[in-house]
Each structure stands twice: as structure tokens, then as C-alpha cells.
Design a binder for these strands. Structure first.
Lengths: 367, 367
DNA sequence: CGAGCGTTTTAAAGCGCTTTAAGTTACGAT
DNA sequence: ATCGTAACTTAAAGCGCTTTAAAACGCTCG
């Protein structure tokens, strides 16, 4: 039970050091002015008292909070990674981060409000779903940087990876391995999926495979990936297998397609669902089918998963985002910027040359 | 670009409503005193101006922050779930939550410091790793509630599930299905794993299976689960396969054990790794081996995974934790409490009666 | 030795809101 | 009419820190 020994205040430090609070304040924040002697006295006093400035009070006084607000989807591992990097980037620039998680009962709008209550000086939105218009409106009143998605909203800074290029890399990689029938598992409605899909389509076209291009409905989670596996008519799912998920299987509507030898998924989670379903159905990956994910998430890196994936290089994005915010905050930038980073393909074990079964069970398909 | 139209202050609202700031303040916080006329005037003025109280200032004035600090491991989906529920529980009681993520470069100590800088009135630590002594020390100065782990630290409230009971439920379930050789995949060092292991051992003893009890080294992630699969000498891994992971495989040291027909894993992630490895090696789950996880995480619930697991009922834990905090804060409770909730077994598709291969590929074991 | 000047130090005025103690009002009771 | 009281209001004093403007203090220089 906190027996509140009355946390020491600046005044205590000052009087103990025999100086004014003004000097003490200056010293403690390492600002020029106070002489060496004063400096030392204050520092000593502070140490002895175990003084820690009251953030609330100092924020009120100085008119800044030095706070960057971040909205994120806690259940996204990609966001989790970004957060880590944001945190360190902010640290380095003397900012602190307050995160506002999105939950079932707490949408983006509310999350943002909460951040504003904290007087965050800039909003970093991870993969925001807010419509552009709303983003733009927000940007009129605050500094906002959208991370990870394209945004046509006036005034907002954007930091994102060139997702279309990323998917392109994946496709090229697969083509380089001899694949031609390469399918794309779409993501959830939204600007991110749109861009990736475009990337897929234009890469296929560029490589002369426009005819082989196939987009199946998918989504952003394992479930959707699994559904997509069925819709793809992959080996173990003879065409009769139309209704693995009776209601939801919108993919089935898309009609028949040639069975692909490789699949690029919207993200790692979907890829995972896909993988799981395939393997359980006796399909060998990468022997029978190659799979590429997107995000290069921690899971993809696990030895047991070892998923070829496209990395959005979260560190770079995080740094760029914080940079964007601080430029506005500290350097007075006022024109919005859009930073598009080049994603990287990370080749792992789920992709292999076409028709070259590398695993021993390449043939096991019919129970 | 924020063209700062000078956010309205309480004073603005007050003067527009033609009353004093004192009245305005009272009204806006819904406190008794102001009459109906005043009330309305203030509310109207506030609405027209789009007034929102400056949290920093009000916190400074009233000596409270109404903030609950939460430390969590962002990469843990279980923590993510808890966070959601904490958020809503806090909301209901008029508290706000500030989360302080643990990252590679930001250990628990720092995370806590950051929370204290925010003047959080209570600290909710999710699965804290801090040694008991440190927890106790912290509890001398602050209200702290440890969530999800046992703690022998004076003064700290504890909210946790009876993990030993939980594992017991899993074992009973398996025994009920006819299994006798039930192995336990251990977790990472720490109080949580210890308790679960104990639960396993005593359940086995209670059911007269003490001799069949086997604990293999594991860990808290997929990787570890996969390693454990190898160490378990499961079907497809003939005894020669001793060094699947040359260096790390401490499990190998444990010597031979009878091949289990069921496995209880430390948590869902480990169970997942285990599952993945088994299935890739052609072992049928639950036909050949039953698997039970722990946490009832979102992943376990996915149709494609459908893992039998033990739920720590996060909603209940979250509510209890916030309750514990507010009791101290608002009701003056001063004696520490330990709330132990009963976990629930959620039976899904990875467990089945022993020797009853429900899937078609029950026999495929030898490549 | 005092003016002049750069360097330190500090008194004091807030930051925007809460809260306490002191005032006002309005009324029914006397 | 007068007084007491209940019901509202509000002036003003902070909360703990920052910052500005002014005071103090050396020192050098004429």
C-alpha cells in the first residue's frame, strides 16, 4: 500500500541545493544558463531526493507534451513490430509514445479522441481505415501521419512501402522459379489490398502472364487463407468440394480457374491459413505449390514456418514516420510528404522451382 | 497543418454561458451544485465551442490522474486479448488506460518507469517477469496488481487463473478419452511454467498415472513446440533422430520416454509448433496423437486450427484486475488480495479418444 | 573607482483546471 | 418587516513546473 511519502517536488530540490526553482528547472533539463557549481548542487540534491519531474505539471507549463500518439490493432503482429521500432525512434528524438489500441468496442475514431485527450502533438496511424475525407479533416487540426497505407488525404503525411512493387517482387521471384500459373489471394477491402492486387496484376501483365492471372477472395487472417485454398481448386480439393464453409465462401462464386502452382497471399496470416490447409490436405509445399506471404512477420520467420515473404521493413517505416512527425513539430515543415519505401523479398522455404518436388512426400495426395 | 485555432478553454465556455469557471467546471463534470439553468447554459456553450477539457490541466488540479498503467508484451496475443477487456473494464469505472509495451530494448523496469511518469495510479502488470522482491518493493510505493501469474510479493494484488487446475482439466479430459501416456511440454522458466508443470504432475499422480508422467523441455513459442515434438520421439521421428536442432535441443538430454498418445503443451503457441511439426511428419492429430494447448488464444479458435485448449477467461481476469485496482483507489482497500479464477477447458478438434484414428490418413507414417 | 557589459540567478507570472471558503439569493418562517 | 436557511455562485488559491523579465554579480576598462 502506497504510504505516499510525498513525492519530492522541484521546490524541494531547489531549496536543498540552495538555489531557486528556476535554476533547478534549467539544470534538470540540461539547458544552458546555470553555472557549474549550481549545476552540481542541483544534480546532487535531485539524486539524493530521488526526484523525478512531474510530467503533468511540466507539460502544462511548457506548452508541449512531446507525445506522439499511435493507433494500432493490437492483434496485428505487424503493428506490434512497428510499435517496437516507433518506440525506439521516438526515444531517440526525445518523444514519448502513447498507444491507443483499437478493439472490438473501440474504433479508430475513439482511439484518436483518446490520443487527443492526451494532447499528443502528432498522430501516427498504423494502417488507418478511416476514409480519406476524415483523415484530411483530422489533418486540418493536427499533425497526422498515416503509416502503411496509401492516402489521398490533403495534409496528411504518408509513410508506406510500395506494396505493388512488393507483390511484383514476389511474382518475379516465382516466375524466375519457372511458375506461370500464379494466383493471388486477395485481402480485406481497403486501399492496402487494392494496391497489392494492382501490383499483382501489373506484374503478371509485365511478365506476359496476364492470362494466367487469377485473384481469389481472401482476407487478412488465417481463416480466409484457408478458405482461399479451397477456392483455388488445389490438388486435394476436387471440384466437387464446393462448400467447405457453407455460408461464407464467397470465393466459390468466382468460378473455375486453372490450378496454380504458386500463390501469393495478401499477408502472412492468410498465407499461414493457406499453408495449413494445403498441408493437411496432403499438398506438399513447396513441392507441389509455392506460397509467398506478405509482411515478413515474426511467424513467417519461425523455423517451422519458414515462409517466403515480402518485408515492409518496419524499422525503416517507423523511423521515417517519427521523422516525419518531428520534422513538422521541430523543424516547421508544413508541406505534406509521402514516403514510399521499397519492400524486400525474403526468400525462405515455401517457394521452390516449379515441378521440382523437394520433399519426400511429393506424391501423397490421394488418401 | 494544424492552424491552431486556439482550443477553447474552460474560461471561454464559462464566459459564453455567462457564469464563472467554477460553475462551468462543476457542470461539465456532472457534479451536484449548479442549478438547471446554469447547467443548460454551460452545456450549450460547451457544445457550441466544441470544448474538451484539457486533461493535463485537470489532472494537475485535481490530484488524480484516473490512469491505470498496463505493461504488456505486444507480441503476445493473450496479452492483446486481455488488454481489450481491461480497456472496457476501465472505461466502465471511469479510468483510462495507458499501455507501456515491453520490447527488445525496453524491459519491464523501464516500462514501469514510463507508466509512473504518466502518474498512473495503479500498475497492472501482465504476466510480470520481475522478481518477487522487486514487485514487493514497487508495491510499497504504488498500487500494483500482477495479472496471470502467482506472486509471493508482499502488498501486491494478484489476479490469475488456477493454472494447475487448468492443466489438470486437460489431463482429466485426455484420460477420459482413454489416454494414459500423456506428456507435458514445459514452458519458459518462471512461475507460470512451474505452476502448470505442477498441475500436470499432480493430476497424473491423482489419476494413478504418475509413472507415465513425462515432462519435456519446451518454451513459449512455436519454435519450442516444434523442438519438443522431436524430443517426444513421436511416430515419424525414429529414435535415431536425435539432433534435429543440433545445439539447442536440450530436450534430447532427458533420455527416452514411451511415446505418448497425447500431449499437453505449455501454451497455444507451443502447441501450434508441435501440431505443425507433427502433421508435416505425417502424424495424424488427433488420430495418432491428441494435443491440448493453453490460453484459448484467437489462433486456437480458428477453424483451421481448432485446438483444444484451456481458457484463462481473460474477460474475467481483466474485470477482476481493474476491480482490484479501483477497490484500492476508490474504496480504500489496503490489504492485498489474491484472486484465483477457475480456468475452463475448451474442447475442440485436436483431441480424440485414444487409438481411434478419425482421419483418413491415420496410417501414413513411413515415408 | 565607477561605468559598462556579459553571465548567473531569481522573483513572479502563468499553463488550464479544480476546489474551498466565502458570498448571494430567494423564501418561508417568525 | 426581519431573520434563518437552503440553494446557488463565485473569487481566489492553488496543482508542480516553465519561462520571461528583471535583478545581481562579477570583471574589464577607461
Amino acid at each position: 500500500m502506497p504510504s505516499r511519502p510525498a513525492r519530492p517536488r522541484l521546490e524541494d530540490v531547489a531549496s536543498r541545493a540552495g538555489v531557486s526553482t528556476a535554476s533547478a528547472s534549467l539544470v534538470l533539463r540540461g539547458r544552458p544558463g546555470p553555472g557549474a557549481a549550481t549545476r552540481e548542487a542541483v544534480l546532487d540534491a535531485a539524486r539524493e531526493l530521488g526526484y523525478r519531474a512531474d510530467r503533468t505539471a511540466s507539460l502544462l507549463a511548457r506548452r508541449r507534451t512531446q507525445l506522439l500518439g499511435v493507433t494500432m490493432d493490437v492483434s496485428s503482429t505487424f503493428h506490434a513490430e512497428l510499435l517496437e521500432d516507433l518506440q525506439t525512434a521516438a526515444d531517440e528524438r526525445g518523444y514519448d509514445i502513447v498507444v491507443s489500441p483499437l478493439t472490438r468496442t473501440r474504433d479508430e475514431r475513439r482511439a484518436v479522441e483518446s490520443l487527443l485527450d492526451f494532447r499528443c502533438e502528432a498522430l501516427l496511424l498504423l494502417g488507418p481505415r478511416l476514409p480519406d475525407a476524415e483523415l484530411a479533416a483530422l489533418a486540418e487540426e493536427h499533425h497526422v501521419v498515416a503509416i502503411g497505407r496509401r492516402a489521398q488525404a490533403a495534409g496528411v503525411d504518408v509513410v508506406r512501402a510500395a506494396d505493388d512493387v512488393g507483390v511484383g517482387l514476389a511474382v518475379e521471384h516465382l516466375v524466375g522459379l519457372g511458375h506461370r500459373d500464379i494466383a493471388f489471394v486477395d485481402g480485406p477491402r481497403g486501399p492496402i489490398a487494392t494496391l497489392r492486387r494492382q501490383g499483382y496484376r501489373s506484374a503478371m501483365k509485365r511478365l506476359g502472364l496476364a492470362d494466367a492471372a487469377v485473384v481469389v477472395d481472401g482476407g487478412g487472417d488465417e481463416e480466409s487463407g484457408a478458405r482461399a485454398a479451397a477456392a483455388l481448386h488445389l490438388p486435394s480439393e476436387p471440384s466437387k468440394g464446393r462448400e467447405p464453409e457453407p455460408a461464407d465462401d464467397r470465393a466459390a462464386r468466382r468460378g473455375r480457374v486453372r490450378m496454380p502452382s504458386a500463390v501469393v497471399a495478401f499477408n502472412d496470416r492468410a498465407a499461414l491459413g493457406l499453408l495449413d490447409r494445403l498441408r493437411r490436405d496432403g499438398v506438399d509445399v513447396p513441392g507441389d505449390v509455392s506460397v509467398v506471404g506478405y509482411d515478413d512477420s515474426l511467424i513467417a520467420r519461425l523455423a517451422t514456418v519458414d515462409l517466403t515473404s515480402v518485408s515492409q521493413i518496419p524499422e525503416a517505416m517507423a523511423t521515417a514516420a517519427v521523422e516525419a512527425a518531428t520534422q513538422r513539430l521541430d523543424e516547421g515543415r508544413t508541406e505534406p510528404v509521402e514516403l514510399v519505401l521499397e519492400p524486400q523479398l525474403v526468400v525462405r522455404g515455401t517457394t521452390a522451382p516449379r515441378g521440382d518436388p523437394t520433399t519426400r512426400r511429393g506424391g501423397i495426395r490421394e488418401p
